[in-house]
């Protein structure tokens, strides 16, 4: 039996207090800044209340950034899950245990890389003249130029491919481990009923893994919010504003172009409200 002890208090209270201070101070301060008109170049400021927010809703570049962010979120989450489930099931079906271990190690490598490194690796690879990834295209077409990062129609997908390269392969390993934890009996039973391989997975194993797969998708949705490094290195939001997500636009408003810190902060506050509400709601659904 555990006696009453001071341990939970001494272990928990300082940590939670520090976490609260470290998270609430910037959060509340972000709201304060958003209600002012601070600029990096000028020290003075006045309170402008909600005019930054009012400006945002008629700022077409902001509305574009919202749309790009939503596209980014959908493309990366869906593609990551498709790649992860596809490769996970394939490993489960055809790879012997030793080969599985090798694949697992290989598939974890990309996600460990700093996003900046991953972005550089692929920026070189996508170079239209000297890139290794565009080489097959040059070879087949006899030297035609394909520049995925500077075409508005392909840039977002080219950057997203790097995200999927990192997370899709990593999640494939997790899907495999999840499949390995399943009891073998239902799979055997389906086999005796002459179910095809893909049918077993579509109707037996994946439905059994519904809850962990949804959690996995939830994690990816959160991680996809952190697209800044990739986009900053690979396209800087370009060509034009084709890959300008919200954090990229907030950064360029606050730091590169005009130093409008308050305006950028207003954007960040809207993002914060949207993500906290969405993810709190989703988390409660996942837990229920």
């Amino acid at each position: 039996m555990r006696r009453r002890s001071s341990l939970p208090v001494t272990f928990l209270v300082p940590t939670l207090a520090i976490l609260l201070v470290l998270s609430m101070v910037p959060t509340l301060y972000a709201i304060v800044i958003a209600l002012q008109n601070r600029e990096l170049s000028a020290p003075g400021y006045t309170w402008v209340w909600f005019s930054n927010f009012a400006d945002l809703f008629v700022d077409r570049r902001f509305l574009n950034a919202v749309w790009v962010s939503v596209k980014w979120e959908i493309v990366t989450v869906v593609a990551t899950m498709v790649v992860a489930i596809g490769l996970g099931v394939l490993m489960f079906e055809v790879a012997a245990p030793r080969l599985r271990n090798i694949y697992c190690l290989l598939f974890i490598i990309p996600v460990l890389l700093p996003r900046v490194s991953a972005a550089f690796v692929w920026k070189f690879a996508y170079h239209p003249l000297y890139g290794i990834a565009t080489y097959p295209y040059r070879l087949i077409t006899g030297g035609l130029i394909f520049d995925p990062l500077s075409k508005a129609s392909t840039a977002l997908f080219a950057v997203a491919s790097v995200d999927v390269w990192q997370w899709g392969l990593f999640f494939a390993v997790i899907v495999l481990k999840l499949l390995e934890t399943l009891p073998p009996q239902p799979i055997e039973a389906a086999r005796l009923d002459h179910a095809k391989r893909w049918q077993i997975h579509a109707y037996v194993t994946l439905p059994m893994l519904k809850a962990p797969l949804i959690s996995l998708m939830f994690v990816k949705m959160i991680e996809s919010l952190r697209s800044f490094d990739l986009i900053y290195v690979m396209t800087r939001g370009g060509p034009g504003v084709a890959t300008e997500t919200l954090d990229m636009y907030a950064f360029s408003q606050g730091f590169i172009e005009s130093g409008k810190v308050s305006y950028a902060s207003a954007m960040a506050v809207l993002m914060m409200i949207a993500t906290v509400i969405t993810f709190t709601f989703l988390w409660k659904r996942v837990q229920a």
Binding site: P26, I33, L246, D247, M272, V276, T280
Partner: peptide
């Protein structure tokens, strides 16, 4: 030492991950 706040504490810790990095970085810079 589970208590009635354990679930809330875990959710609070996780929710720190929802905060967009820009939203933390801009005020901290100031």
């Amino acid at each position: 030492y589970p208590n009635r706040f354990a679930g809330d504490i875990q959710f609070f810790v996780l929710s720190l991950r929802f905060l967009p990095p820009v939203a933390v970085a801009i005020p901290l810079m100031v």
